[in-house]
Design a protein around this nucleic acid. Structure first.
Lengths: 246, 246
DNA sequence: CATATAAATTCACATATATGTACGTTTATC
DNA sequence: GATAAACGTACATATATGTGAATTTATATG
């Protein structure tokens, strides 16, 4: 079950992150198609808790810097080491595609850092973006770091769907693909989940955290050179990862 | 009316900002006294939207960097000029008290930047903290920047309460205090709202934004030297504010 | 300045939603 | 390795909550 008003809070914030200017009650209500009275209650709640204010009279609401203060406190705990951002920045620059750091979230994989391609046709992903862990290169690079039991426990919760022609639709199919990935030295995906999208990924354990790096883009650009891209990822990790730490 | 689940989202985030480590469903449910089933729905919603993930298996949930990404996008719009932070940092250092930048939010005033005193006994305020606009030094420094009509419109919405012995409990009382503030050259408050708390504030218009600076602390420390403190605020603003801009 | 139009609030009620209860799964204990 | 305790998940139901309509307040227009 989805908690509607919880989702609405996030949508309002995303709205402000997008329009980047104050908005009145009416504007927000119209934008989402919400009743004004409901919008009023939501805005009042956010204001009362100190997350919204009125920068200038009658010009509407805008989030207070409290969001930033809170997000900073949250993120200063085990932040990703600096070199991982350099890693995906370099990868994106060299390949011209979108590169990301990915972490597990149950049966899904979450993008926790992203550097987007500059190409007109590109993989559009943002921090927080989620994809099925079993049907993506990045996800499988995470699964490779699990024990057999942990994987089994994840499998039990997966709803196998045929997202595309090559989606693995059984536990055995996923396990086979994992074995192939080990043999091959990297994980790959050709439209297993998203149409026309291909990617190469490798595991990226940091401390006791299980992460992965992925480079992804349109099938026609990435397809012919997955192996190259995968090798580049491996080399770049080798170059940037501090030698001392595991 | 307060939208409970909207408030709960904020409380969860504040919880993480405080404990700074992953928490399991059970821990969160117990902490807030929420039923597990409800907590489950909330966490599922936040996860589904990409705001929560599971850093390591079975070690619970933690917010994704998406919060930070969003907060950054929101805050890069008309951020406070750098010098205002220097301003309150200097004021706090020189006075040993808490200094803040404050903005209006209806009948309330919101703290949008804070540098806290280091003293053991101090005014504890955080970004997002809200106080009544008419019953605080910082709030009245905002009201001074309003036209008479704008003030009247605010007055109509105020519920006058006797927060402390000196709280102004009528429109006339507030207007009188404003006139006194103009004559005096700064706004002050002696436990008008919070017990034992005194403060000095002056208006701080920036562009078309109506802000104020306030220095506040325990009555026994601030009380004897409000005038000094107010003068210091004025001098420091003069020193730091760029001459070009109004 | 009066009137019209739009926006913000309030409130009572029907309905969408939070939760008690029960079940399956995982982890801890002996 | 067996048993117990804790944890996570699903669902039906009573109730807390969102909302449509009415009221008040603010802004635009003739």
């Amino acid at each position: 079950m989805i908690v509607r008003q919880a989702a609405n809070v996030l949508e309002i914030m995303e709205f402000f992150a997008q329009v980047k200017k104050p908005a009145t009650l009416a504007e927000i209500a119209d934008h989402f198609g919400w009743p004004r009275s409901s919008t009023f209650n939501l805005l009042a709640t956010l204001s009362e808790k100190g997350y919204l204010y009125e920068p200038r009279p009658r010009a509407g609401f805008y989030p207070t810097p409290r969001w930033l203060a809170m997000a900073r406190m949250i993120s200063e705990v085990e932040p990703l080491p600096q070199w991982t951002h350099t890693l995906i920045a370099d990868l994106s620059a060299e390949t011209g595609e979108t590169a990301s750091i990915v972490a597990p979230a149950g049966v899904m994989a979450v993008f926790i850092d992203v550097v987007e391609s500059q190409a007109a046709i590109r993989y559009f992903a943002t921090i927080g973006h989620r994809v099925p862990i079993h049907a993506t290169a990045s996800g499988r690079a995470l699964l490779l770091q699990y024990s057999q039991e942990e994987r089994d426990s994840v499998y039990r919760k997966i709803e196998f769907k045929q997202y595309g022609p090559s989606t693995p639709i059984s536990i055995e199919a996923v396990e086979t693909e994992l074995r192939n990935s080990i043999a091959r030295g990297y994980c790959q995906s050709f439209a297993d989940y998203s149409r026309d999208l291909a990617g190469a990924a490798i595991p990226l354990p940091i401390g006791d955290r299980r992460l992965s790096v992925v480079v992804a883009g349109p099938e026609f650009r990435i397809g012919p050179k997955v192996a190259e891209v995968a090798a580049l990822i491996a080399r770049t990790v080798d170059r940037l990862r501090p030698k001392a730490a595991a």
